[in-house]
């Protein structure tokens, strides 16, 4: 009869959940079975919407007197009639729709990407994580060999990676309709690999350059890796609003690092101990020159001012306990 009109039901993230081919010139949309497109949304009227071409030839959506109305895009204002451009979704009840004519222009065919990830990548990452973890376990192992000391941490790591990936897949499935386990596994393994490489590097760097802070603040590296992995998981779930997602995981990392720093500094204040580099490496890995006696003891002399300052700061609390009522 008339032209073909496509009605697409979108997710909140604008992924197409369902696509319905309708014969024009007019399409009726609503919850009742008298419609061309039936929407199972309790907030949609039985006969909610009519789509047709107006005198000027553009596609128009018209509210058929529903209680909840018709809205343009996300948020938007209520309208009786909306001219449709085929890009901007419309909302009825809690359902997002996009309506396109058969003549709607689609982008040109994209060249097939060279496959960089996938199964092989997952295997390579998993193998390198196992290799790194086993190696660092072995290099730190000073006791009699026991297989459990190697196998159990690896098993724990495997379970952790699977649980983490599973969690993201479930979230993905819930919010976008697709689990994408393979992609999430890839992200999780990449994050884990980065984590083990960076923490090992921090340990070696702390020794090689005599920068104890690198080892002491290793947890910052861990949180940054976790946040980065979260970002890429979110990216896999949908590419919309990436800056917001980046900001959210950035905030997560900052808050976690700040909280852990606070815990450590307050723990240090109550124990009174100072952290120092305890994990030493073979001498040949040292990359900085050793401090000369004068320089070393110069720094030691500088500590006196800090100590005396700490003592001075402590005096007022104690001053009240002595004095007064000496005679009895």
């Amino acid at each position: 009869m008339g032209e073909v009109i496509w009605v697409e039901v979108l997710s909140r993230h604008r992924d197409v959940l369902e696509r319905r081919r309708c014969e024009g010139p007019q399409v009726r949309i609503g919850r009742s079975y008298a419609n061309d497109v039936v929407i199972d949304d309790p907030f949609v009227a039985a006969a909610h919407l009519r789509v047709f071409r107006d005198e000027s030839g553009s596609l128009v959506a018209q509210d058929l007197g529903s209680a909840n109305g018709l809205f343009a895009g996300h948020g938007g204002t209520r309208a009786e009639r909306l001219v449709l451009d085929g890009e901007q979704p419309i909302r009825i009840g809690r359902t997002y729709l996009r309506i396109r004519a058969a003549g709607h222009a689609v982008p040109a065919e994209r060249a097939l990407p060279v496959r960089v990830y996938g199964g092989r990548m997952v295997v390579a990452l998993a193998a390198s994580i196992v290799a790194i973890e086993t190696a660092s376990q072995w290099l730190g192992d000073t006791r009699e060999f026991q297989a459990t000391r190697f196998v159990l941490p690896l098993l724990a790591l495997v379970l952790l990676a699977l649980a983490w990936t599973g969690m993201w897949s479930i979230l993905s499935r819930v919010f976008t309709g697709q689990a994408r386990f393979d992609r999430h596994l890839l992200v999780a393994l990449a994050g884990l690999a980065a984590l083990s490489v960076l923490t090992d590097l921090a340990g070696f760097g702390a020794f090689a350059f005599s920068l104890p802070a690198l080892a002491i603040y290793e947890y910052a590296v861990i949180w940054i890796c976790v946040a980065a992995a979260c970002y890429f998981h979110l990216r896999e779930m949908g590419r919309s609003r990436l800056p917001v997602k980046a900001l959210a995981v950035g905030a997560l990392a900052v808050v976690s690092i700040a909280a852990q720093t606070l815990v450590r500094s307050e723990g240090g204040a109550s124990s009174g101990r100072q952290e120092y580099l305890r994990d030493l490496k073979p001498p040949f890995l040292r990359l900085v020159p050793a401090q000369r006696e004068a320089a070393f003891f110069g720094r030691v002399e500088d500590l006196k001012a800090k100590l005396d300052e700490a003592r001075a700061a402590a005096v007022p609390a104690d001053a009240g306990s002595s004095g007064q009522e000496a005679e009895e």
Partner: peptide
Amino acid sequence: FTREFCHENFYA
């Protein structure tokens, strides 16, 4: 006691 303060480095 006050808290502890340390200096650490390689030493020649």
